[in-house]
Design a protein around this nucleic acid. Sequence first.
DNA 1: CGTTGTTGTCAACGGTGTTGCGCTGCCTCG
DNA 2: CGAGGCAGCGCAACACCGTTGACAACAACG
Lengths: 231, 231
Amino acid sequence: MPKSPATTARSKRAGSQLTPDAIIEASLRIAARGSEDAFTVRRLGEELGADPTAIYRHFRDKDELLLSVADRTLGEVLDSIPEGLDWKGRIRALAAGSLEVALRYPVVGSTMASRTTRRPNEFRVVELIIGAVMEAGLQGAEAAVHYRMVGESLLAFVGQRAAHLLFDADIRAADESAWSREYRLVDAQAFPNITHLSTELAEVTDEQIFQVRVEALISAIEKRVETLRGA
Amino acid sequence: MPKSPATTARSKRAGSQLTPDAIIEASLRIAARGSEDAFTVRRLGEELGADPTAIYRHFRDKDELLLSVADRTLGEVLDSIPEGLDWKGRIRALAAGSLEVALRYPVVGSTMASRTTRRPNEFRVVELIIGAVMEAGLQGAEAAVHYRMVGESLLAFVGQRAAHLLFDADIRAADESAWSREYRLVDAQAFPNITHLSTELAEVTDEQIFQVRVEALISAIEKRVETLRGA
DNA sequence: CGTTGTTGTCAACGGTGTTGCGCTGCCTCG
DNA sequence: CGAGGCAGCGCAACACCGTTGACAACAACG
């Protein structure tokens, strides 16, 4: 832990090879390799051309490193959202951007699905979502709980997709083929609905599902606003 | 792997100490201890009073064991759903039951959040959800994609809650106190919405959020039905 | 110029899931 | 009734994981 510079601005040492930023970028490079290359401390040392344990001079543990990496990617998402969108557009852009980086760096999206980073960019996301639900017409406790619904749902969506991408290729293939193979062979007596929809079930794509899930969030907010207005 | 009995019905050996069922039940006992006791193969052997590696005579690997355990708990959920409910009631009961077992056996709920078990009870759940969305008024491809939305959303919800329960107590405490502490101290200029809602944000409970998320699924389906009817 | 503190290296620890080998005791069949 | 075969279990070990403590090099400071 570097002592925080009191008055002198000497914080940058010339001889320091490793910096937090360099480590984060190396982490992203490994994370981008998805399931082909596990994200381990030893791999990270290899990628940096340094001893694996050197990382512990800059991050307390692997968890703190992952939180920092996650905050970096969250920043990328936020910067990709254009100005001037209405509340629905902002939520859709946030969802699409989050999914994009989560699929690019699966290990990050997966481990952060049920965490709170409490880092700068997370506050920006919170501010954005709360602004959206308030613009939609919710206030006070209603706005608060609906923000949490949107935030955690988005996190859960992209985390789920990212986690799926981390499985070995063969497990993933088995999961995907289930819809087109096993669900066609179920007992028609015991499972009439599955039998009836087997063709349509096999044709649903992940992208369709994601879009419907995002639209469900939006329409749930709209419906809540209408209900409160009517009452 | 026991050879499948061709004609003779000798499948049950008297001397076999360990059975798949006994292993599954021991797993559930460990899983119920939550974050106090990690769910490892060695712990499982301890719980069974047997050598840890004996488990591999009954399950190919830990993943297959977890899938079997998950299917068992899924059966409990399904059996707890009463007869005669309308489609909304069935979805609410499924959601509540799933959450209940996921919180009781966090490690199961957490690891299964992005998996497909392809085991008997999973088909029953699929049948149930498809029946619900069709009773709501959706058909064909619309019913298929909305089933997937409901199924994966529920899995994601309970998986998220379960995963949160698996963290060490101190990490969990830090996450929970964030709302009541750190979010009150943000810069009011940069984050006006957070500042404005800080009190309400701290008062939101997990149960409220879960309920709103489930109702969001239902109202999204209703809205979709209305839209299609109107067109 | 010596002292101090930061940063990287190295070896090692305790934990994980998993596998190969050998023993034991039951089941089946001649 | 005896002999084989084999399923089930214990044991030791492997490869990998995150993490820690001791040590060396080196820059910055008084």
